[in-house]
Simulated assay, not measured.
Amino acid sequence: MGPHSPCVDIKLSHSSPISKPPVNPHRKRFLTAVYSFTNRQQHQLSPRAPLPYLQNHDNKLLLVHLAEHIEALGQLIHRKDTAMSTHPYSTWRQQGETYYVSGQLPTDPATGTYPEGIRAQTQQALSNLETAVKEFGCGRQDIIKTTVFLRDFADFAQMNEVYAEFFSEPYPARSAFAVAGLIPGADIEIEAIVASGGRS
C-alpha cells in the first residue's frame, strides 16, 4: 500500500501484542469512515485530500476498539430485531422528546427466569426498565410516569418500598393496578413514559 492510498489497512505486525480481530463488511465500512475522519482531523486535510497511510500504533488500537463496540451494538440490534419478529410490539417508541416504554417483566436476563418474591421481582422489573431506558440515552431520572401491574394488590406495600428506593424526588407520576392476566410466574410488570429533559 502506497503512502497516500485512501484505503484502510489495519494489519498489525507480528511483534504487536494486539491480535487482528475478525473482519466483516460492517467493520470494514466503519473503519474506513473513522480512519478518514481521524486522519483528516489529525493532518488538517480538506474533505477531498488524499489520506496519509495510518502508521500510528495507538490509532490502530483505537480503531479496533471502536469497531468492536460497533459490532456489539450491531449484535444488540440483531437480537432486538429477532425478538420483534416473534412479538408484534416495540420495546420503546419515540414521539418528539417523549419515549414510551413497553411493560417490563421481572425477567432475570442471565437466567431467563423470574426471581422469587415480590421484592426481588420489583427490583428486577425496575432494573429491566432502566436498561430499556438507557437504550435511547436516558436514565431513571428521566422517567416521568409509570404504570405498575400487580398480580395481587396485597403486594403493593412491599412493591412500594422497593420502588421508593429506586426513584428519587421528584418521583414520577404513577398508576397501579391489580390484574389477573400477567404471564404465569410474574407478579409484576412496569411500563413507563420518559422525557429526555428529565423530571422537574
Rank of each mutant, 00 (worst) to 15 (best):
A125W: 00
S85D: 12
L45Y: 09
R48D: 15
V23T: 14
N59G: 12
T98K: 01
R93G: 02
L129R: 05
D108I: 09
H26S: 14
A125M: 02
H57D: 15
Q95A: 10
T111W: 10
R29W: 03
E97P: 04
L31W: 14
R48C: 08
G137H: 05
E130C: 02
R40C: 04
K20V: 12
A110S: 15
Q41S: 11
K20I: 06
P21W: 08
T82W: 09
P52G: 11
S36T: 15
E135I: 12
G112N: 13
R29P: 00
L129G: 13
L62W: 04
S127T: 14
N56V: 03
Y99A: 11
G117R: 07
Y53G: 06
L126M: 02
V34K: 11
H26Q: 09
A83H: 15
D81L: 15
A33G: 03
K28A: 13
T122G: 00
K80P: 02
L66C: 11
Q44F: 11
T107P: 00
V64L: 14
A125V: 01
E135K: 11
E68H: 10
A83P: 01
S90A: 13
V34C: 10
T32L: 08
G137C: 06
R119H: 14
F136T: 07
T38P: 01
T122W: 00
V23C: 15
A125Q: 03
P22Y: 03
T113Q: 10
S19L: 12
L45M: 09
L62Y: 13
S36F: 04
L45R: 05
P52N: 06
A132G: 05
P47R: 12
E71M: 03
Y53P: 01
G103W: 00
E130S: 14
W92Y: 15
N24F: 06
L73W: 01
S90C: 09
G74K: 01
Y100N: 05
H87S: 11
A72N: 09
K28V: 11
Q42A: 13
L54N: 13
V34S: 06
Q42T: 12
K134M: 11
Y35C: 09
N56H: 12
V133G: 02
F136M: 04
K134C: 13
F37A: 12
V34F: 09
V133P: 02
L54R: 12
L66S: 06
A49V: 02
P88R: 07
D58M: 07
F136Y: 07
P52D: 09
Q41P: 00
P47T: 05
W92P: 01
T131K: 03
L105S: 08
A120L: 07
H78I: 03
T113L: 13
P50C: 04
S19F: 07
S46A: 12
P25D: 07
S36V: 03
H26C: 06
A49W: 05
Q121S: 04
Q123V: 08
T86D: 06
S127C: 04
V133N: 05
T32R: 10
T111L: 08
T131L: 07
H26A: 13
Q123I: 01
L31M: 08
R27M: 13
K134A: 10
V64K: 05
